[in-house]
Design a binder for these strands. Structure first.
Lengths: 236, 236
DNA sequence: TGTACATCAGTGAACGCGCGTTCACTGATGTAC
DNA sequence: TGTACATCAGTGAACGCGCGTTCACTGATGTAC
């Protein structure tokens, strides 16, 4: 009986666990992951710092929860953006929606984005629990590329791939469950898109487009367009 | 007389300044930028922690020096790699050399790369002094793209650009001193290449290709090749 | 329904740590006559 | 070349801070009879 008969204690526990996580997320947005402090969270919640340890065994466990929470939140946002595209066959629109969703999410809370995609927090080693939620966003990107292949899209240019190159990206070809594995050329394109998307967002958020790009929104939109064309999702 | 008549004091000063920076660089490689500690550096050098303040007025100043030093070192490595390509007209080779130089440099000292291109250090605001050295690497990338345009290379695909999009990247078109400004399409390509290159390196170093890419070296080489083809530096 | 015991949440003090920065000081190096 | 003074490098103690984590404890909640 896992659902109904929750004791008052269990209810309070769930609530406080969430309150701690909420406050941790806020802290994260304010000071960044490295400065996240168990004591500060407890202080803000009006409780003794030691009480937090009834809910999370260590600061690292709290960070892990935040990371998983972040990947899940991003994944949900990205999936919702994709699902919001009515014309499912317009892969260019779906691709654009996904890219913009990632960027919008990142800009809404740069520290949180940094926790996931920036420099790893010093002294913290992400456990395997964080891997699965992380793939949510990636899977969607790859699946759009896979759909492009199925739809017969022609990428702008293709390089010949050596056996070693094909082997290097083997996991990507079977990353999403499909009838047949993805062609290596498309898998490579997916990897390039992945790098460009997150690279662009990181460079923008971390200040490397300073004085080089004047209008980030416009420019990003155009980069996404360019990627869509390179992928063969639409013609120029 | 700025050169010859250096007093013993000035010599000692220069030497210790360098020793502090060297040790700071080593610390950086070991523990990362956020954990860089004035006291630890002093300890390692066998001096009082307060003595460091005769050379750098604050921890932030030390970080700034490390950042400038890092951009300069990366810039020098990248320029050397480019200069090492004898056939100056083989833009694909030059482009490849530059990309691999950035990645090699980053892999040699990931923390140092993270200081420059990762999450900004919390509580630290990089002063303008760091901007100029940062452009060294970027300029070289842009100048290769500009050379591609001058050589009449044809990128794989081009999207039509609105006035707003052209305006957004205006600084890039006049980023390197040339007879004529760079075409907007090439400037856009430069920006995409910039994002892809650093995005790929960051994703790789920060663990996001884990279990997705099996052979990083091979894969990166191929991504660079693909970019060269997309840029029209060579045919597939 | 009521009692006896076990479980759990939260407290507050404490441990031990390292940090950045300041300051009055000593002694060496440099400079001007 | 020698002396008098100014400048500078380096010291060691101290200030004030915040951190993660532990531990013995009190009082409330849950459970079994």
């Amino acid at each position: 009986m896992p659902s109904a008969p929750r004791t008052a204690r269990a209810v309070a526990r769930a609530e406080l666990t969430r309150a701690i996580l909420d406050r941790a997320r806020e802290q994260l947005a304010e000071v960044g992951p490295a400065a996240l402090s168990v004591r500060a969270i407890a202080r803000d919640l009006g409780m003794a710092s030691s009480a937090v340890y009834r809910y999370f065994p260590s600061r690292d466990a709290l960070l892990t929860a935040l990371i998983i929470d972040g990947y899940d939140d991003l994944g949900a946002a990205v999936e919702a953006a994709d699902a919001g595209v009515r014309q499912r066959r317009r892969l260019d629109l779906r691709f654009g929606a996904v890219c913009h969703a990632v960027r919008d999410w990142a800009r809404a809370d740069p520290h949180r984005y940094g926790l996931l995609y920036g420099t790893p927090v010093p002294g913290y080693a992400a456990p395997d629990d964080t891997v699965a939620p992380a793939t949510r966003t990636t899977s969607l990107l790859v699946s759009i590329v896979a759909a492009a292949q199925e739809a017969g899209c022609q990428p702008a240019s293709a390089t010949t791939m050596s056996r070693a190159e094909i082997a290097a990206i083997a996991p990507l070809t079977s990353f999403v469950a499909l009838d047949s594995p993805i062609d290596p050329e498309f898998a490579l394109r997916a990897s390039v898109v992945y790098a460009t998307l997150f690279g662009h967002i990181s460079l923008e958020l971390f200040g490397h487009f300073h004085r080089a790009i004047l209008d980030y929104d416009t420019h990003f939109a155009h980069v996404v367009d360019q990627m869509a064309v390179d992928l063969g999702l639409r013609t120029a």
